[in-house]
């Protein structure tokens, strides 16, 4: 089979581009630890309300000055509905669902997770800008899906 010269160049260019993209991703993963959320911890969805630390959802301060925020997603609300954290704080969100699949998304940030019953998903974020952030469910979860949102208040330091 004859492959035209230009065609060959074009294919080499295409493959080279793809390899460059992949290399960039690998670099971002290793250098800046930009990796997708991959919570591997399991939890019984029927017993979430009794299982620590989800029996007391909300913010927790660790000894190194960073924070953990435990969230329950449930039709059609987040618990806690409002979270207040200081500007510049490093927060790791832990989220689980008691019923169907929900989303956990803070517009304007890369906080973006699927919340699957039976699993605890997690993601870390540093809120550099003070102000009020919207937290919303961005996976269809039922008739009240559009009403499922909360607030994150980042207070000025």
């Amino acid at each position: 089979m004859h492959i035209h010269k230009y065609e060959r160049w074009w294919m080499i260019f295409g493959v080279a581009m793809l390899i460059a993209f992949l290399a960039l991703l690998a670099f971002a993963a290793v250098e800046n630890s930009i990796v997708p959320p991959s919570g591997m911890q399991q939890i019984d969805p029927k017993l979430v309300a009794q299982t620590p630390p989800f029996n007391h959802p909300g913010l927790r301060r660790l000894s190194d000055g960073s924070y953990e925020a435990y969230y329950i997603a449930q039709v059609f609300a987040f618990d806690p509905p409002v979270l207040t954290i200081p500007q510049g704080a490093k927060v790791t969100f832990y989220v689980t669902s008691t019923d169907v699949v929900h989303g956990f998304f803070v517009p304007g940030t890369a906080v973006n997770m699927m919340v699957v019953p039976g699993w605890v998903n997690m993601q870390t974020h540093v809120f550099r800008r003070a102000g009020e952030y919207l937290l919303l469910c961005h996976e269809y979860c039922g008739i009240g899906h559009q009403d499922m949102f909360g607030k994150i208040e980042v207070t000025k330091r």
């Binding site: 998304f105 517009p107 009020e132 952030y133 919207l134 919303l136 961005h138 996976e139 559009q146 949102f149």
Partner: peptide, 19 residues
């Protein structure tokens, strides 16, 4: 890019500023 979700009947979110 500004964060508007898909699959949502009404994206006003109680008048939130981003929305």
């Amino acid at each position: 890019l500004l964060g508007a979700p898909r699959r949502t009947a009404d994206v006003s979110y109680g008048g939130a500023a981003v929305a």
